[in-house]
Amino acid sequence: MNVLRLLAEQLFRASLLGFPRPLRRAFGDEAREAFMADLLGGQGAQGRHGPVWFTVRATANVVREGLRERIRHGPLPGHGATTDKTTRRKTMWGGLALDVRPPFRSLFRSPGLSLAAVVVLALGLGANATVSSALKSTVLAPLPYPDAEALVMADIVAFRASREERRVMPWSYAKFRTFVEVEARLPDPVAGYGGRTGTLSSRPWG
């Protein structure tokens, strides 16, 4: 339970990065304390889905409100706010850059670990992309023919009524020719394929 509590607190603390820096400095600690009090007191977490859902909601709410503050209003007066639109925009996104910079600095501080993380990510993403594309081309994508969904495969099924037995018979070229000639009334084209090497003669069969 302590681990979950710690996780929830860390998650909430991380979400506070969405708040503009002045707002975070002014209210971050209080907001975190209020969140923890509600979480532990069980008042906010008493809902249908309990503390986990409360944590998700509270965290998402902080991110949303923080982004809204950054995008719609800019910084607070006395914390870098200005009436000049260009400067205000620069300060607003400059604040975001200030928040994003420290993680990047720590990445460059330990290049070995960062490289290992990048390699692992690259391998994972590559393997994922390979499997996904193989799955897509073999299973999900339609066959490269017009009206591919109307394509059917024909089998020869021998049915023995006395034993009520069905048996799929193998195709041969002779059977295929017979099928094509007999079923010439079919409006759709018929084609055959095989996995064996054979010799075709121009003479009539037989």
């Binding site: 979400s15 708040f19 707002l23 002014a26 209210f27 209080e30 907001a31 975190r32 209020a34 969140f35 509600d38 906010g44 809902g47 909601r57 509270a58 709410n61 902080v62 991110v63 949303r64 409100e65 923080g66 809204r68 503050e69 209003h73 607070l76």
Partner: peptide, 13 residues
Amino acid sequence: VLLPGALYATLAR
């Protein structure tokens, strides 16, 4: 439920 994110952003404004 008034969540902390909405509360403190509103208070600041």
